[in-house]
Nucleic acid binder design. Structure first.
Lengths: 335, 335
DNA sequence: TTCTGAATGTTAAACGTTTTACATTCAGAT
DNA sequence: ATCTGAATGTAAAACGTTTAACATTCAGAA
């Protein structure tokens, strides 16, 4: 495998290296004839441009890194798919920053920007991996969760507060009064916002919410199942459960069935996300649909805008959500 | 953001650049005192090594690229998670090569190895993106599907033929005689092998398989649903359907329910993969479980072995599969 | 004819590392 | 005093590009 570089093309075509470079990158700097000569020579010697050389010189790697807790999570995988699509359109590649929840790994991946491996970062985490870095000592960065801690980082997400309220109202309208909640990781802003929305909607309906009615889980099926079991041990049972993700809801429904509850006859369940399997769940899951892939795509577009030197107009970009009513919700048993 | 490099450390510490490099990469080449001096200086000036410079010089990028049709597919996402884990252990990063089925993109991503952006490739595709490249004109490469076309590329997968036979035998043992199949993309070796296994098991049981009984889909829920509808239009209905992936099976079950069939009472369904949602499907899906994450991990380990110059002992690495019997299979209606 | 400027091409200096080959120092053996 | 060799440090040449600055050519205007 003979290494061929611009040097070899230059020799083959009888021109200088600079001319070769121009023929590729800057066609107008070079006559038509020369360009053809160079291109032909490149083909003859079997040239593939070396991106490292170019990146080193231009200080642009052509990569972005997406920092995300778990790539195997359905919602996350879709986010990434959206990001990847627009990155590719822009000629960028995606470096995968699967953190598995580790803050150390978050920082490790964030460091890729400083080390020249990436030109920008999309962060799907509530933590900020940069210590005390003001807006211009920091690489281009977009947050894909709603993220309040740092005033100057653009975010894109749905209106989690409204989403929480919408799900709750749906249950209230069905006649439920005793509604419980299984949250996601409360360190995440989305979880906190959804909880706010829940409380607000309950308050509007004149219902207080007892602390016994909210149980905390992480965003996983296992977490949902565990939380559901815990919830049903408590004295007063709810007639409906609002889960902060579809994975949680699916785990929750599974646990309910194991404990002899039938959804939705004995208990209504609603989720958030509308992952692909929500509609195929047992029973098909009522959920607050997010435009997941579009959120990813939007993150990427904003990131590229920033990389192009534009300061985005709004810091927070809200995309629309929508309640998808399926079969996991119904009026409460006694009605 | 002042760019700091080894040059700055050298100045700060009063040594040469070479010494700085040695202090980091080759601590024994340098006295204890000097090393400490350099490290302290590095910390003072706020140094982050530039990977591009190093990569250019050493011709090693520290990245691998995984070429895969759809990162949002549950099975694929798990494969990637497995790959990512061992890559990280080895200090490598993963570049995402989401092809969305496009052969052009496959080649584009494969080219990243030639352009210095990646040191190795994991290929989850039945296509070979290198034209006429013998083993040493080609970057280190491992295939994560069973892949017969190219004699010298290592593969890791389950024994798809046996898996196909196992699923079929399970249905036969339940008493099914009229068994249909919904395949995945028949361009993939796994699909062809699973079909072979199916036919073999049927033949062993003295059952011929009519062409009407095999319908082709791609590996997706939508494909499974469409195929199921097509299948039920045909004259003689089967009593069981063997789907070549869980996504297909879940789509299939959904279509069946829409058409008024109850699984497993009217129709048994079995899948392959054991994705996370198989157990949460409606009803919980009987499936041939693959060690998906381990397959990914194994691919990565073999790739790194090759990159270390070892020629792997075996070309084909078979990992164990196992039938997971759940509630989507039962004896046929008339028994 | 001379001058101007556009069109085209080239030289050489970066970019930030690693690494080879060489230089220096110095302890201990002779 | 000289030699040997280990220990430590350095100079400089890579790696493959891009790009600023300069050189050449040549058509057309004066």
């Amino acid at each position: 495998m003979p290494k061929v570089g611009m040097k070899d093309i230059a020799a083959e075509a009888g021109v200088s290296i600079a001319t070769v470079s121009h023929a590729f990158r800057n066609p107008d700097r070079v006559s038509d004839g020369t360009r053809r000569k160079v291109l032909a020579a490149a083909r003859r010697v079997g040239y593939t441009p070396n991106r490292l050389g170019a990146s080193l010189r231009t200080a642009r790697s052509g990569n972005i890194v997406v920092i995300i807790p778990d790539i195997a999570d359905s919602h996350n995988a879709r986010l990434i798919a959206g990001i990847e699509r627009v990155a590719r359109e822009k000629g960028y590649s995606v470096l995968l920053g699967n953190t598995r929840g580790s803050e150390a790994r978050e920082r490790e991946f964030a460091a890729m920007a400083r080390s020249g491996q990436a030109d920008g970062i999309i962060l799907m985490s509530h933590r900020m991996p940069f210590t005390a870095a003001s807006v211009d000592e920091r690489p281009p960065l977009v947050n894909g969760c709603e993220f309040t801690g740092h005033a100057d980082i653009p975010c894109v997400s749905i209106d989690d507060r409204a989403a929480g309220a919408d799900a709750t109202r749906h249950l209230l309208e069905l006649g439920h009064r005793e509604i419980a909640v299984i949250t996601g990781d409360m360190a995440s802003t989305s979880s906190r916002r959804r909880l706010e929305g829940f409380r607000a909607a309950m308050a509007d309906a004149g219902r207080a919410v007892d602390d016994d009615r909210v149980v905390f889980a992480d965003y996983s099926t296992e977490g949902g199942a565990t939380a559901a079991r815990e919830l049903l041990l408590r004295k007063e049972r709810p007639t409906a459960i609002f889960c902060f993700s579809d994975e949680i809801a699916i785990g929750c429904m599974h646990a309910l069935r194991e404990l002899g509850f039938e959804v939705p006859r004995d208990m209504s369940v609603v989720g958030v996300d509308d992952i692909e399997f929500a509609r195929y769940a047992n029973p098909p899951l009522t959920t607050v649909a997010q435009p997941t892939e579009e959120i990813g795509a939007c993150c990427a577009r904003i990131l590229f805008d920033i990389m192009d030197g534009e300061r985005p107009a709004k810091r927070i970009h809200i995309l629309p959500h929508q309640l998808a009513v399926r079969e996991s919700t119904a009026p409460p048993p006694d009605s």
